[in-house]
């Protein structure tokens, strides 16, 4: 059983902390002015203290984001540690906001702070949840889009959480689209320069 006395440092403690960011869309301001650092943490206890005191993602208004990134990496493509990277992206159906979104996001957060991506956890920069009217999105951002081995290891989404909590499994079972639903990896460079609304997938799992 966890001890009450000693805080449990996250695996990342020696090199960095995690930082939670909040974005609220205010069109009268520049994009960056709408992005706020909420806090940083480095223990399991502080993670839960934060998680239980902030609004659930499903209760945010459309246009808002939460981002959890390693301290020192800003949640934007332009950051030097993101610009060559990309994201594994899950787009959720509208009705999933009230049934599964919060669980999916929590599972994603646990995978990040627990460093559950084996030797490729260093490739992970952070994760983002976008609350959007047309469909919410959850993404894991990685450092180097050309690192096929690392990206595909992270993208074997079963490793985001063991069965029966696998996001990929839950997602596909819920929608009953086992062969049609893909979780795609998109390079930020392609997302930034896209002409239409769709970005091509560099990898698919």
């Amino acid at each position: 059983a966890p001890s009450l006395q000693a805080p449990h440092p996250l695996p990342t403690l020696l090199s960095f902390r995690w930082a939670l960011w909040f974005f609220k869309n205010d069109k009268s301001k520049m994009w960056q002015a709408n992005l706020r650092l909420v806090t940083k943490f480095s223990t399991v206890e502080d993670f839960w203290a934060l998680y239980t005191h902030i609004q659930l993602a499903s209760k945010l208004t459309s246009g808002c984001d939460y981002s959890l990134f390693k301290d020192g990496i800003e949640p934007m493509w332009e950051d030097s540690q993101n610009k060559r990277g990309g994201r594994w992206l899950i787009t959720l159906a509208k009705q999933q906001r009230h049934t599964e979104l919060d669980r999916f996001w929590l599972e994603t957060l646990l995978c990040l702070i627990g460093e559950m991506f084996d030797e490729y956890s260093d490739e992970v920069c952070g994760a983002v949840i976008n609350i959007r009217a047309k469909g919410d999105k959850i993404a894991i951002w990685t450092r180097e889009a050309e690192n096929r081995e690392g990206v595909t290891h992270i993208g074997r989404v079963e490793s985001w959480a063991p069965p029966p909590f696998s996001l990929r499994r839950i997602y596909k079972e819920h929608l009953g689209l086992s062969q049609k639903v893909a979780i795609g990896y998109q390079a930020h460079a392609d997302t930034a320069t896209k002409s239409g609304s769709l970005t091509k997938n560099k990898f698919v799992v």
Binding site: A1, P2, L4, Q5, H8, L10, P11, V44, E45, F47, W48, A49, T52, E107, L110, C111, I113, G114, E115, M116, D118, E119, S121, A161, P162, F165
Partner: peptide
């Protein structure tokens, strides 16, 4: 190998009282 925490370990802390 690299140090990791699994989800069950992390979830054990979710509803623990916090010492302030």
């Amino acid at each position: 190998g690299k140090k990791q925490y699994d989800r069950e370990f992390l979830l054990d802390f979710q509803f623990m009282p916090v010492c302030i």
